[in-house]
Computed example of a mutant assay.
Amino acid sequence: MHTPSPSPAAALLDAVRHDGFSFATADIMQPLLESAGELTDWPAFAASWNRLGPDAYLAAKGRFRRRRHATFMARAQGPVELAAHQAHYQSLHYNALQGDIQRWFEPIEPAVANGASLRSILGFCHGFFGALSPGITQWHVEVHQFRIEASSGTAGEPTPEGSHRDGVDFVLVLLVDRHNIASGTTTIHTPDGKPLGDFTLTHPFDAALIHDPRVFHGVTPVTPLVADEPAHRDVLVVTFRAAGNGL
Rank of each mutant, 00 (worst) to 15 (best):
Q145H: 04
L122E: 09
A131F: 05
Q145E: 10
Q77N: 13
G127A: 03
H88G: 10
Q98I: 05
T154I: 14
H164T: 01
A131R: 01
E109W: 00
V141K: 05
N95F: 10
E149F: 05
G123E: 09
G156R: 06
V141R: 02
H140M: 14
E142F: 02
N114G: 11
E149Q: 15
F129A: 02
S151G: 13
H126A: 08
G153S: 15
H144M: 11
Q90R: 06
A111N: 08
A116M: 03
L122Y: 07
A96L: 12
G78L: 11
H93E: 15
P107K: 09
S133R: 07
H144A: 06
G123K: 01
D100S: 05
E106F: 04
Q138M: 14
F105H: 14
E106N: 10
W104P: 02
P160L: 08
S133K: 04
L118V: 07
A116K: 03
F128E: 04
V112A: 07
G99A: 06
G156Q: 12
S120N: 01
G130T: 10
L122V: 03
G99W: 04
L118P: 02
S152G: 14
R147F: 01
D100A: 05
Q102P: 02
G162A: 03
I101S: 10
A76Y: 13
I121F: 00
P79S: 15
R147S: 09
T159V: 01
L132P: 06
I136T: 09
F146G: 07
I136R: 00
R103D: 13
V143K: 03
Q145Y: 01
I101H: 15
R119M: 09
E109S: 07
P134Q: 07
I108S: 06
F124L: 06
P110H: 08
A113L: 02
S152V: 12
P160R: 04
N95E: 14
A111K: 03
A150R: 13
E106R: 08
V80H: 05
N95D: 15
H140T: 12
S91W: 13
A116E: 13
T159D: 05
G162I: 04
Q90F: 10
H93T: 09
I101M: 13
T159L: 01
L118A: 09
S163P: 01
H126T: 00
G78E: 14
E161H: 01
S133T: 02
G162R: 05
I108H: 06
H126Y: 11
H140S: 14
G135V: 08
G115L: 06
